[in-house]
């Protein structure tokens, strides 16, 4: 796909400057994006390459539980699984992080210690409908609880209404509240409707200081789709070319099978290169994906098909 020829000058926080920049980004060829994704999706990854991809995918998982019915016990059980995904096989790596609601960050931190990261969703997740003070208090709560990664949602209403500066300032304020914690900005691409908007929101988030851009909350369908992820990866690549900074991408929601996960890895490799094939720069937000990765891993280790009786029920 085409690269942006060059970014003459990055905008400042001035509303007019932001708008001119974001609306000056070239439009996304949606048919082309789908075609590219479909073509890359046919790559066949087998044997040693598959084994490598499965282990890498496990290391990239943000093991997630974001339900109203989450209990401290459930979070602790999930944390145990995050550290040691398959208790029968110590060669299985730990996942990248656990992802919980802010009030459970302390429980998660106590359970995992410093063995995996603790990500907490904040800023009135998942809708993002609250005042800035409330959102910042939400972030500080999560940080106090021990979260070292914050998954914030953008105000999609403001974004769609064209109030880019408001979204920008919110991200800047949250980033400041995060301190040393990593900030992942959830674009909720299912609500942005067009790939043009996905490109604009990606740039907006990166300009405002995001360390990661994340597709979705997982509460809206469609969640992560390959074309959306492709557009975000391209934005990340162009941002690196323009600024030299490396921004991570997190595909969250709707990725359930190892096959899907491997397709995403191919997409990453072919769009931004293998530099991004590390847990610090690419993540999967998922709950059921890990079980399927484990089943595939067991299948490759034992030579026979495994079944859901041989992994934990989450």
């Amino acid at each position: 796909m085409t690269r942006l020829a060059s970014i003459d000058s990055l905008p400042d926080a001035n509303p007019g400057s932001l708008r001119r920049f974001l609306h000056g980004l070239p439009g996304v060829d949606e048919v082309g994006a789908r075609g590219r994704v479909d073509a890359l999706g046919t790559r066949s990854i087998k044997n040693e390459a598959k084994a490598w991809a499965i282990d890498l995918s496990i290391r990239m998982v943000d093991l997630t539980t974001l339900e109203g019915m989450d209990t401290p016990g459930k979070v602790r059980a999930m944390c145990a699984k995050a550290v040691r995904p398959d208790p029968t096989d110590p060669s299985v790596p730990s996942v990248a992080a656990v992802c919980v609601y802010g009030d459970l960050a302390a429980t998660a931190r106590a359970a995992v210690g410093d063995r995996v990261h603790v990500a907490a969703v904040a800023t009135a997740f998942p809708s993002g409908r609250a005042s800035l003070e409330v959102k910042l208090a939400d972030v500080r709560d999560a940080i106090d609880g021990g979260a070292d990664e914050i998954d914030m949602v953008i105000d999609r209403g403001a974004f769609l209404a064209g109030e880019y500066a408001r979204v920008f300032e919110e991200i800047v304020a949250v980033k400041e509240a995060c301190g040393t914690a990593h900030l992942k900005v959830i674009l909720e691409t299912g609500e942005l409707r067009t790939l043009d908007n996905v490109r604009r929101a990606s740039w907006l988030a990166m300009l405002a200081g995001a360390d990661f851009i994340k597709t979705s909350t997982g509460k809206v369908t469609p969640a992560a789709t390959p074309p959306v992820t492709l557009v975000m990866l391209e934005a990340v690549r162009d941002f690196r070319d323009a600024t030299g900074r490396l921004i991570g991408v997190k595909a969250a929601g709707g990725i359930r099978t190892s096959k899907d996960a491997i397709k995403y890895l191919v997409l990453v490799n072919e769009t931004v290169g293998d530099q991004w094939l590390v847990p610090d720069l690419f993540r999967f937000g998922a709950s059921t994906l890990l079980n399927d990765l484990l089943l595939q891993r067991q299948r490759m280790a034992t030579g026979h098909y495994s079944g859901p009786d041989y992994v934990t029920i989450d």
Partner: peptide, 9 residues
């Protein structure tokens, strides 16, 4: 043979 060793059968 694959079904005979399949853990979910």
């Amino acid at each position: 043979p694959w079904l005979a060793s399949h853990a979910d059968v």
